[in-house]
Amino acid sequence: APPGAVPGYREPPCDDPETETVAMAAVKYLNENLLQGYKQILNQIDKVKVWPRRPFGEVYELEIDTLETTCHVLDPTPLENCSVRQLAEHAVEGDCDVHVLKQDGQLTVMHANCHSTPDSAEDVLKICPHCPLLASLNDTRVTHAAEAALAAFNAKNNGSYFKLVEVSRAQLVPLPVSTYVEFAVAATSCAAKDVADPASCQLLAEKQYGFCKATLTEKLGGEEVAVTCTVFPSQVADANPADPAAAVQAAPSAAPPAAMAVGPIV
């Protein structure tokens, strides 16, 4: 371009079907590449610029707001069936900048950068004065609750020994004094009933993940734990889920692999 020349861009409306298709492709890409936490759902398109790209195609520069759903990223439930995390549960918002190339009708995410922010304590307490707020995942009460809950689950489990993958969310409840945790787990090669050395248990080649919700209640002279885990069907190995050049098709997803067609086990 000659010096001083600024290449032009166009600004379609944020709610234009074309813009929405690109934003949905970006959210799909985000969810396929998230390594932890919860699946994100599109909430609002903030800005859009469409730049011409040489020799062919266009680049969509989008700013989008997302909201956390209740589906963990390891949960194979389609995003359409996931609920948005409600304000009373202490919602979390994502602010994302994305660049999407449209060429020959195909959408490819070239860049995506998101920052997540929980709703303010003030806003949560305004709509629900007694609701527990999100707690730090490093809090010792949180890590203890997750470890105790997983131990309780493994003790009652006749199948594989499950290891903790991540604590994804936690709340400290004042009355009764308790800790609510949600965490992801993965099956290992060991049987839960006869684990001598948990450190030697390896994750299965065909990864099998689960997602648990637990409450650890402090009682006089001890504690009580209630835990429910959903174990997802084994997942076939993904070629390269973190490949930034991976193409995101605007068309609906293909049918899930056969290994994922089975329902979860609770």
């Binding site: 944020c14 759902i41 609002q44």
Partner: peptide
Amino acid sequence: KPNAAAAGGAAGPMVRPCPGRVRHFKI
């Protein structure tokens, strides 16, 4: 005051193209 039509301005209500609609709720 300049006439909006004479200046090439639209006579109808202004459409704000962005940001788009909120699908769930704002936090």
